[in-house]
Design a protein around this nucleic acid. Structure first.
Lengths: 222, 222
DNA sequence: CTATTCCTTACGGTATACCACAGTTCAATA
DNA sequence: TATTGAACTGTGGTATACCGTAAGGAATAG
């Protein structure tokens, strides 16, 4: 079983709940923290004292408060952790349901498990820990199901994503074309922009571009 | 202090955390439940056995699972509770930060307190309980601040809200006008619909209707 | 009752979005 | 090199959105 586990989670009630779950798995050393920056510091100092953590359980969303922050989200924490301890196993424990975000997380940051917060979260977390211990990946059932159906979504590349963002920011078609011109992006003509938008509307089954933006937000692509 | 408190919250770790917080306040009888339907049943049966609850602490979002559900959200639960026990004090305990939703909740359902989940949630919850006990309202600090600045938003009436929803659902201007015609709503002509949209764009400082939808979603109006 | 104001609606012109088609570029391949 | 096919681009026509104006009507104030 894992020996040294760090929990990064801002809600204090959840923090204690997770700690108890880990106790039930006989994990000897459990450290909790409510800030991403603190989490990174603790990971770094653990490395320096030759007792590195072997598992990080982190939330994605950390509310802002009075404290100055360098790392403001679980995703940033993960990215930072990967640079100083690439082999550290990471389990994400979050309410995030937007499959676009989750897929991106798994693909980009090579996360070992994704546990969706919910009624069965304790059991789910235990399953995830056991799976990761054996070198496997794990995702909550719902997420697993959803991930199977996002291949179409992954057709949307970074340019499509940017295009959706610009639409949501209030740029008109021609302004988007100009923006793409400046940045020297491919398919930067007005005609191509129109074609992209149309493709996305078909892909997401949107009748209008207003709905397209709404869907993109809902799926976490923006 | 309150004697009989019901907690409705689907995440089991949070459930136990809240329970512990209530213990610290010396509340003798605490009941927890993970489903809205169960919560309503328990409230009803408590009334029948002449030991009614005097406080309900409820989340807003309850994830769907295998179980068939009548009530699917905290808001529906609150609405149902108000019909069978109007005097029951209600504290909402949620991560919902979209001020539009919160304002609507407080205005429409006459909720006694709104506690935002976060780092200080335990203390915040205690403050809320004490305030409600004395017959006062309570909102987390952030929420309190935001509520002071939503007067402009509240200019958007139910028709504007519906209009935004229809836009997000992919209806064109003319279709929205037809919809308003059928429902016999005021200002149902195409011209008036256009004017409403324009008014909303000015109000929310949106350059395009795509951005308008994005902003409306962001503020929790949809 | 009249005047004023506000709201609603209709209308027309302009701008933008939408869409189909055709020509072009460019890279992969024979 | 020549060919092919996919992606990109330009063009023009149609639909829709956008925006100003003005007419009509209801509510309100004088």
């Amino acid at each position: 079983m894992f020996q040294n586990v760090l929990i990064a989670e801002d809600q204090n009630t959840i923090n204690k709940g997770v700690e108890r779950t880990l106790n039930e798995l006989s994990i000897p050393n459990i450290v909790t923290t409510q800030y991403c920056d603190d989490a990174l510091l603790k990971i770094r100092s653990a490395i320096n004292s030759d007792i590195p953590f072997d598992l990080l359980i982190t939330d994605l969303s950390f509310k802002a408060d009075h404290r100055e922050r360098q790392l403001t989200s679980g995703e940033e924490l993960i990215k930072a952790v990967k640079t100083i301890q690439p082999n550290l196993k990471i389990i994400v424990f979050s309410v995030e349901h937007r499959i676009g975000k989750i897929k991106n997380l798994i693909d980009t940051h090579n996360v070992d498990a994704y546990v969706e917060k919910g009624r069965e979260e304790s059991n789910d977390l235990k399953k995830a820990i056991r799976a990761v211990l054996e070198g496997n990946r794990y995702c909550s059932y719902n997420v697993e199901q959803l991930l199977r159906n996002v291949d179409d979504i992954s057709q949307t590349d970074q340019y499509d994503e940017l295009l959706l963002q610009l639409l949501a920011k209030g740029l008109k078609r021609e302004q988007i074309a100009n923006y793409f011109q400046e940045k020297d992006f491919p398919a930067r003509s007005l005609s191509s922009i129109e074609k992209r938008i149309n493709k996305l509307k078909v892909l997401f089954d949107a009748h209008t571009s207003e709905q397209l933006v709404a869907i993109a937000i809902d799926r976490g692509l923006i």
